[in-house]
Design a protein around this nucleic acid. Structure first.
Lengths: 188, 188
DNA sequence: TTTTTAATGTGACAAGTATCGAATTATATT
DNA sequence: AATATAATTCGATACTTGTCACATTAAAAA
């Protein structure tokens, strides 16, 4: 199961936050922000074993928050200042086009449609506003724009979906999906 | 085992980052950033069960990233924009005075001193630069500033700590902890 | 070369987190 | 009042992460 670029991008962002999502690592960043330090020193200050410190430092480094260089025995870690200057919004916000293609934004809409339509017929008219809106928006697509419909024509089309054509007509008007003047209907 | 205010502050910061440390929650923040949404909708889009969404939303809310209001059946979540505008540095940086008092910054130094001193005697002169520096800084405190010492006096004081007084004298000079001119030593 | 020291890697265990099904609560519809 | 819907809570389970003892590696000192 390999990952899409979108998923990898997403996880990289999450990993940056995960790196900062532990008290010991927030302390480490603060201590290194004062001055570059090596692992032994941090282990002594934080009262954790070198192996544990090493693990934390690796996470912070992988997230791009720290760099390190060797000096004698020591591996000296210092801050990468640029990352810290960025805002949360900056780091959280995904490119809108990617989001739109990757995430089925209309999944909720489709779920509602699937629930209320069976074999091309409307099982019932949803009582909930949000759902009624979705259903009626779908139904109004049966009508062409810029064309007059007599009430009897409207009924003939709607009855294919549901018997209560009167309610459907009324809802079209109240949701401003259709207009009616002198018995003539038009899609808006 | 109750927590100090310092620890609580620290964990609160970590919790904010933890909240953003999961791909699903980064997506949720992005989706809600477009427009306020309710749980069912997010569940449909992300293909996760309502219980799971609820769990994620609770985390984001506790971290102060989201607020919610009730509307009919629905609990509608929206973004708290202010938090997202802050920089990482802002959210990571602990107040320096607190840090200094809570964290024993000189823990490393103390560990080194404890390792090399036993019963007031210096076990050996550390070969590592960093440690030698620490030991000599401690030893030089045996001398008063603004006072002349003959070499024989210096020896008399140092021999209490270690037999190799010549090396100690030499290191004092090279670390610029003492000066010597015409056989007279002074603490710097 | 041999010994010392800091850092890293490994494996084990404990602690924490994500996900979901089932039960419960709050609200709306009939 | 009875039914339907969205949200939350609880408990179970699988997965991930933190911590450490121990072994190994890399560099420096003796």
């Amino acid at each position: 199961m390999s990952k899409t670029p979108f998923e990898e991008n997403l996880e990289a962002r999450a990993d940056l936050f995960k790196a900062l999502g532990h008290p010991a690592r927030i302390l480490i960043v603060n201590l290194i922000r004062m001055k570059p330090r090596h692992g032994e020193e941090l282990a002594a200050i934080l009262k954790l074993k070198p192996a544990t410190i090493s693990h934390h430092l690796a996470k912070l480094t992988r997230a791009g928050l720290l760099t390190s260089r060797k000096d004698q025995y020591y591996q000296i870690y210092s801050l990468v200042p640029a990352v810290l200057e960025r805002s949360l919004a900056d780091l959280v916000s995904l490119p809108q086009p990617d989001l739109k293609t990757e995430v089925r934004e209309d999944a909720y809409r489709e779920k509602v449609l699937k629930t209320f339509f069976r074999h091309g017929r409307l099982l019932s008219i949803p009582s909930q506003l949000k759902k009624r809106q979705i259903i009626l928006q779908k139904l109004v697509e049966e009508f062409e724009p810029d064309r007059d419909y007599a009430e009897i024509e409207v009924n003939r089309i709607l009855v294919e979906f549901h018997e209560d054509v009167a309610s459907l007509r009324r809802e079209f008007i109240s949701f401003k999906l259709m207009s009616r003047s002198r018995g003539i209907y038009r899609r808006l």
